[in-house]
Amino acid sequence: MLEIKGLKVKLEDEDKQILKGLDLTVETGKVHAIMGPNGSGKSTLSYVLSGKDGYEVTDGSAELEGEDLLDMEPEERAAAGLFLAFQYPVEIPGVGNMTFLRTAVNAQRKARGEEELSAGDFLKEVRAKAKDLKIDADMLKRPVNVGFSGGEKKRNEILQMAMLSPKMCILDETDSGLDVDAMKLVADGVNALRSEGRSFLVITHYQRLLDHIKPDVVHIMADGRIVKTGGPELALEVENNGYSDILAEVS
């Protein structure tokens, strides 16, 4: 599904290398987790994959189902099936959440040459999915993320993911700022979307989220590279011993 080879990325405005030759393959239908200390480049990886400005790829490649991601505009990556759940979802005053969702869904359908969803069909689908995530009608009407609590924002990200049905979902520290109940709700939303044709890359600091979203593979990232890869037990090791042991072991 996602194949990253030797990816090197620096900041556009500064001479600062963040990713230093990252290799990562996420197979179709699998859930991979990336853990790592602060500053290891986890969020940068998610931004570079989704096409945010401000980064310069100096070497390497990233492909989604064989297509060169790095050559695409952010909206083309989305239409190709990539989705990033933001660590800090953006507030957009003046744009209703429903309008936003519908614009996004139909823009992607259009880009893929599919017919746009009718207002009625869209409404039916969004209501059903919102209900599962305990998102009420008021949240759908309000401007995108404006006045939403931390938990509401994250649930709103998962709602977007559910509506857009991407192939490759990247969750960037989706657990940050969530209490236990909210995390469970978000995790349930993600788990409901797990399927044979869909892959996940879950970026997190803590093992906690991985209790709820069980990964197939766990990677440890440090200083711009994947330094260790293993099964779910690797996350437990981090939880019990911190990163220092692992980093010491691989250095």
């Binding site: 096409g51 945010k52 505009e73 990556r77 957009i92 005053p93 936003f100």
Partner: peptide, 21 residues
């Protein structure tokens, strides 16, 4: 970027943000 990452083309995203302003 948020709008574009959801698949809304740059041109439409700019107009949507202008209207929201």
């Amino acid at each position: 970027f948020y709008l574009r990452s959801r698949g809304v083309p740059q041109y439409d995203a700019r107009n949507l943000l202008t209207l929201s302003f």
